[in-house]
């Protein structure tokens, strides 16, 4: 029995050896350090911990198990998703191929790729949201419209920096300050950028208390900030029940591509308001939301593989995301 040979095989197949032997193995090491930093920010600094812990651990698992050319035991395989998206490949959009080759995190990622998790998150958000103030004062929708300014400026900035149109649109949407929408759009338009865009979107949302106050202060007067927002009128129960039905009908007919997100958002809100589905509303707000958050965060984190994440364009995305976020804040704060 060749004990030395067995030990040599064991050593050469280990992740420790892969850091030095695999092509770009050092990038995995860098990503593992980044994962530790994100874990620190989530756990110690409490920056969006419910998401950041999952994202960071997904990143850690992915970079511990996947090395370029040594992906047999990997939990996430970027190359099978590249094949999945390659229109010249025989496995183009073949979920059968994914099921055959996938690791655990690839299976989780199917929910992102198919747009399931962001839609389910929206259902939970709908079940948690009271649209009463909006119904009482519909003009407040214009604040939301103004706050989209950063999306379009970042889109233009991204094109200037050499990103393609779909990539630029995915980067711009970071300014919408909505993680599930950013993920949903990026998986449709530029799935290769999902990792950095998700990280930028959620990081800036976590940093809202640091980013937004100085911008709001600069854009508003002291008197404006002292205005106490009171609900303009009482909103009836019937109005709140009819609202999700009317909005879903109107918006989906107007923009059919928004159907998954708006449909789920309004379904969740109907569960909340109709008064006869309290159990469903409770599930959508709590259990379902928590389960989907685990899958979404872990699978998005898994896309942060060193080989594709450690590129100059990731830095561009982080900077453009901040620009989008800051300008959107300024747009929404402009009197």
């Amino acid at each position: 029995m060749d004990i030395l040979g067995v030990l040599r095989t064991l050593a050469s197949e280990s992740g420790f050896a892969a850091f030095f032997l695999a092509d770009g193995g050092w990038k995995n090491l860098v990503m593992i350090i980044i994962a530790f930093v994100l874990l620190y920010l989530g756990i110690v600094k409490k920056f969006e911990p419910l998401l950041l812990c999952g994202i960071a651990f997904g990143c850690l698992l992915s970079n511990l198990s996947y090395f370029v050319g040594m992906g047999a035991n990997a939990l996430y395989h970027p190359e099978i998703w590249s094949t999945f998206l390659d229109s010249t490949s025989p496995y183009y959009h073949s979920y059968g191929y994914i099921m055959r080759e996938a690791g655990l995190l690839d299976f989780f990622y199917i929910g992102v790729k198919a747009g399931i998790y962001p839609s389910l998150i929206f259902m939970g958000v709908g079940a948690m949201t009271d649209f009463g103030p909006l119904l009482a004062r519909p003009k407040s929708l214009m604040l939301g419209a103004a706050a989209q300014l950063g999306v379009f400026i970042a889109f233009f900035g991204a094109v200037l920096l050499g990103f393609t149109g779909p990539q630029a649109a995915s980067i711009g949407i970071i300014g919408g300050a909505d993680g599930p929408t950013a993920i949903f759009l990026t998986t449709k338009l530029a799935p290769e950028l999902l990792g950095p865009i998700a990280i930028a979107a959620y990081s800036y949302m976590a940093l809202i208390p640091l980013i937004q106050p100085p911008i709001m202060k600069a854009m508003t007067t002291d008197k404006m900030r002292k205005v106490k927002m009171v609900q303009a009128r009482e909103v009836s129960k019937t109005e709140k029940i009819v609202f999700p039905i009317v909005v879903a009908t109107f918006v989906i007919l107007l923009l059919p591509s928004t159907a998954p997100l708006i449909g789920c958002l309004m379904l969740g809100n109907l569960f909340r308001e109709c008064g006869v589905t309290d159990r469903l509303s409770d599930t959508a707000q709590n259990a379902l939301m928590n389960i989907v958050t685990i899958f979404l965060a872990t699978s998005v984190g898994a896309t942060m593989v060193g080989d594709s994440f450690l590129q100059l364009q990731t830095i561009y995305i982080i900077i453009l995301g901040l620009v989008a976020f800051a300008i959107s804040t300024a747009g929404g704060s402009t009197p």
Partner: peptide, 11 residues
Amino acid sequence: LVMLMAVIIIM
């Protein structure tokens, strides 16, 4: 959003 606002006001 203006159209949506109009729908909400009418409703």
